[in-house]
Computed example of a mutant assay.
Amino acid sequence: MIKSIKVRLCPNNKQLTKLFQYAGCARFAYNWAIAREQENYKQGNKFLSDNELRKEFTQLKKQSEYQWLSEVSNNVTKQAIKDACNTYKKFFKGQCKYPKFKSRKHSSPSFYQDNIKIQFSDTHVKVEGFSMSKKKNKQKLNWIRLCEKGRIPTNCKYMNPRFTYDELHWYISVGIEVEDSTTIPLNNGIGIDLGIKDLAVCSDGNIYKNINKTTTVNKLEKRKRRLQRSISRRYEKNKKGGIYCKTCNIIKKEKELLKVTKRLTNIRQNYLHQTTSEIIKRKPSFICIEDLNVSGMMKNKHLSKAVQQQCFYEFRKQMEYKSAWNNIPVIIADRFFPSSKLCSCCESIKKDLKLSDRIYKCECGNVIDRDYQASLNLKMYGENVLKQQSVA
């Protein structure tokens, strides 16, 4: 099993310059490879492999106008060309859209490091080629400080190390191979009903509230709206003809808005991680969740923002990979399974149940919260699926 770890970096000014230089060279190599493939296709030739393109790129670097490419580690540009060829292969297989050129303004800067030459200590990561000098004081430039101490283990094999920038901070992400879990959990299974009123209602009685209704998130959302209006007014004020001019004050305001948006994202992501980890720690024998039609739910103009803020897809993704780490099967209920409309006692379906009906009342006398009943029905669905698998 491969676990990926992502840690924020604390580079100094010289290291920041080098990081952006590496990312710029990776973007240039990627765009050059795509342009070369397009030119080759127009001429009616066969697809160029990454080995052929890398040989051409090596000859390109020897030209005087491209000498600046030699200041960057060779592995950075090689992997960028390989990534471009891989996107073309995925396009031919129908796994992605047609490859596009990376924009200097809109694409997020990132680059690859050689998994053999990269080194980690408890507090620092060594980047290849920042300083070629053998002097100790200049070798320090290669070592970038990590924000979290001892997060990435040392003296092990690393896979696909990548440096990425999210418009505020630089991060290092790396894959590490760990042993598969062999323990089989024997506790009762859990059905989880996701919703907007509460994030998740579990069949064992645990309820995880909606983090977006807290005062902290509401204050940040209000601040975000005010900053957006302020930036919009400044753009209109500095408009010259049909062109919008970006002033220094607008850049400051946009950076402030970016920090608020990032803060909101971090709060939601952290809450999702806490919720999913808490469910996994109870070690259920299985977990059953719904296959929600999120894209269809987003078409409802009254609920689209609330659905977007709940991050249902991220919740499901975290549950799946954390369950795989702990050897817990995840059962995805059919999209058309009537989890809320089905009575948990007599199994009759109430077809006229509205979204505003929060309490389920059945003719058999069953009166229960609709979300809790949905979680009980999902638990029963999971038990039936496991029985069928054991019989087969």
Rank of each mutant, 00 (worst) to 15 (best):
I2G: 06
K3V: 11
S4Q: 15
K6D: 08
V7C: 09
R8Y: 01
L9H: 01
C10N: 12
L16D: 08
L19K: 00
W32I: 00
E37C: 11
E37N: 09
E39Y: 07
Y41Q: 11
G44E: 04
F47E: 10
D50C: 13
N51F: 15
Q67G: 13
W68M: 08
T77A: 10
I81G: 00
D83H: 11
A84T: 01
A84I: 03
C85E: 03
F91K: 08
Q95T: 09
P99I: 07
R104H: 14
Y112H: 15
I118T: 06
I118K: 00
Q119M: 14
F120D: 00
T123M: 10
H124R: 05
G129Q: 03
M132P: 07
S133Q: 06
K134H: 11
N137K: 15
K138I: 12
C147N: 13
K157M: 10
S173C: 15
E179K: 13
N188A: 12
I190G: 00
L194R: 13
G195W: 02
G205M: 04
N206Y: 10
N210A: 11
E221L: 14
R225H: 12
L227F: 07
R229S: 14
G242K: 14
Y244Q: 13
C245Y: 15
I251D: 12
K259P: 02
T265L: 10
R268W: 04
Q269V: 11
N270T: 12
S277W: 06
K283E: 12
S285W: 05
M297A: 05
H302F: 09
C311K: 12
Y313V: 09
R316I: 13
N327D: 03
I328M: 05
P329G: 03
I332S: 03
I349P: 02
R358F: 06
E363G: 13
C364V: 09
N366G: 09
R370T: 08
G382F: 03
N384I: 09
